[in-house]
Design a protein around this nucleic acid. Structure first.
Lengths: 415, 415
DNA sequence: TGCCCATGTTCGGAATTCCGAACATCATAT
DNA sequence: ATATGATGTTCGGAATTCCGAACATGGGCA
């Protein structure tokens, strides 16, 4: 049950830690053993891969497991925490469980009992669908696995599907996979992007249009929000007739607004959205960015940079930390450029992010960088709140007077 | 002498400040009057336009003028500071002048004497070349004015000129202006970009090539670093013959490296670089970015967004703060997109920087943003120093142990 | 084997940041 | 004219960051 699971163990005691490590590895788990809170904080905040559970001692040399957990809670949903302690009491247990900790076990305990509770903990977590014909499509994060599960669900159903996601999130890959996993996979897969069609009516509904050629297969319509009202009406009519194919549509994150302003037909929307598959942007799932980096590297490096031996750990960190507005497409084009520029045996951060290169003695200090980033973010928050300082402070999660003082220091006026 | 100069006055005393303000404005200066150190710090660090001088009292309610000056010195070269004080002594005067302050005047003083010393101070500073036929080309910063002066110098000379600057810095505009201001302006201006030529030899040196058609005019060769060795040799030969035209060439920031590795002929380089005009990137001169924003806005807004009434102050700040890797070209394309997207009467930051828009409740906290920025910068510094932590700390201007602790906290390994 | 240089790590104290209470001021609505 | 809600501004204390000294450890080189 623990086989192939990724467990973080936070325990400073050599004997206890060694025993747990040994048993967990015997059970087939992959274990990261950390002895200090600060190390655990870094490792859990930016995991190398999704963490299935954390076994955490309360007493640590540089703080406590409770502090660690509460610190993590401030900015994210931590993975399941199972606390172990020789001391502590009901009060602490109550506090931690109420705060969202998964379990709390007092020493001494049988390791077998602990492992059983751990197994129950991770047993509920989604297992990747391991199929050689259908490798992971979106990544390795919890969100990616959820999408894969939704794909399987959609493939088994006959309902129309709406895929929602920003640029570079792989909506067409998802549509294709739904088709391939369905029992319509022997029938045609017809794809059409409304953003690129001059005459969407003819392309979709005309003689020998997409509706004709798809037969009992899957018709994938990307950029559905760009469909003109007239074509929407005709499509509704067409769907009310006997339509033996299956519709998969895709849009960005603006369809709700289009419906609200009447540009998109809400009845059509409901017809198309029996099943919805939202794809979060890549910058909300940094471990998928890293996964995609390695996937693309394996695919592209042999041809574009055969001399390269791999990707440096710093590059991996840089990819994990980057704000991927342009999604997979951006990552792919950066990698291609990086492969062309790389000189040493390993791909370096400045190969992927040439903006890291600056002239000699021109690198900003850390304080300057911090200040510039704060300034940009404050401006963005003020923009969002139309100059309302109190609201902007809430968005930024700082005190109103702190924001006011920072605006003074950084030279930002409110409007 | 003070007419049209921009003076910042830092003086909390209402009477003294009011008098100075009045006289400076009578002399035609534009004055920003500030009464607290924190306000002055923000205003001087990110000026709305280049500051010609600062008149600064020593005693301020929230600190001292000396503190202000020394704080500014830590990260930049401040504009000329002229201190005024009722107290103070030789020691303070010596300290400040040695630290780079321009002058130090003790109260009481005749305002006319002060203004005279101020005039001497700002008199040495470059005046913009005000010519209706030739408006500013690069911006309003000191660096931009220096480029304008170099353009005038180059126009008057007959020497070959090399223009050096990154993408989007306007190298072709500079070349054109040199030609227009020269006495060859009636002759042809022939422009060729080696990055876009399939056959550079034929384009330059063949029959009816650029060298033939330019006559006594100006031949501008962009991306000179892309010239093949064989063509370089032929060009040297051609220049050794009677060539009555004038050469202006341009490159990025990599020519030195190309020479060092033998890809570019150093003799040719010296022949081409009698006069060199370096163009700093736009992110090194934020006030030029703002100037360019307004220039482009005036040019593009009437046609693309006639309903707009202007640019919000926050947008101006956002442009001033942005890291303009792609130079003017990036700014122009962002503005075009912004004009298309703008909804209200004023252009807003998220029109120019759509990445400021995030989903509801998805905005990062200020602490998260600060942390992500620090992490990216640390990774960049470690990349630059090939994993050497001590060297990276120096680049970042923090203590070695501070860097080490931050790496732990942020989950960064060294290599 | 010893030396040098760098990292790994701790820690106390100085410096800085952040917060929240408090109060004045201003704009808007009634 | 008054009430309300927001900004402008100060400030003391708590919290956090940063620094630099100190020392152990490890790798490379002579």
């Amino acid at each position: 049950m623990l086989r192939n699971r990724y467990i973080v163990l936070v325990e400073d005691d050599e004997i206890m830690g060694g025993s747990l490590l040994q048993r967990l590895e015997l059970e087939g788990a992959q274990v990261l053993w950390l002895k200090q809170m600060v190390r655990a904080l870094g490792a859990i905040r930016t995991p190398r891969k999704p963490i299935d559970a954390v076994i955490c001692d309360i007493g640590l040399p540089d703080g406590s497991g409770e502090e660690l957990f509460l610190t993590l809670l401030q900015t994210e949903t931590p993975p399941p925490f199972l606390f172990i302690t020789g001391q502590g009491g009901i009060g602490q247990a109550v506090r931690l469980i109420k705060s969202g900790a998964a379990d709390y076990v007092t020493k001494p305990f049988e390791i077998s009992v602990l492992l059983e509770r751990l197994s129950l903990l991770v047993g509920n977590r989604e297992q990747p669908i391991e199929d050689a014909d259908f490798p992971p499509l979106m990544g390795v994060s919890v969100a990616a696995r959820r999408i894969e599960a939704l794909i399987v669900k959609a493939a088994k159903a006959s309902d129309h599907v709406l895929i929602r996601g920003g640029p570079g999130t792989g909506k067409d890959l998802v549509a294709r996979r739904i088709h391939d996993l369905s029992d319509r996979s022997a029938a045609p897969f017809v794809s059409i992007n409304l953003a690129r069609e001059a005459d969407t009516e003819a392309a979709l509904l005309g003689h020998a249009g997409a509706f004709d050629t798809v037969g009992e297969g899957t018709l994938f319509i990307n950029a559905i929000g760009k469909m003109e009202a007239q074509v929407q009406a005709q499509m509704l009519e067409r769907l009310n007739q006997e339509f033996v194919g299956r519709l998969v549509t895709a849009c960005g994150n603006d369809l709700q607004a289009l419906i609200a302003q009447g540009t998109f037909n809400s009845e059509l929307f409901y017809r198309l959205t029996r099943i919805e598959i939202p794809i979060p942007p890549l910058d909300k799932r940094p471990e998928d960015a890293v996964w995609l980096l390695f996937q693309l590297y394996r695919k592209l490096a042999p041809r574009h940079a055969p001399q390269l031996e791999g990707i440096s750990p710093l590059s991996e960190e840089a990819v994990r930390n980057h704000d991927w507005q342009g999604g997979g497409r951006d990552l792919r084009s950066r990698l291609l450029r990086g492969l062309a520029m790389a000189r040493g045996p390993l791909l370096q951060p400045s190969d992927l992010f040439p903006e890291f290169l600056v002239g000699p003695n021109d690198m900003m200090s850390l304080a300057e960088t911090r200040e510039a980033a704060e300034k940009a973010h404050i401006i963005a928050a003020l923009d969002r709140t139309h100059g309302q300082i109190g609201e902007a402070a809430k968005l930024l999660r700082i005190a109103r007077t702190t924001l006011w003082e920072k605006m003074q220091k950084l030279g930002i006026s409110g409007s």
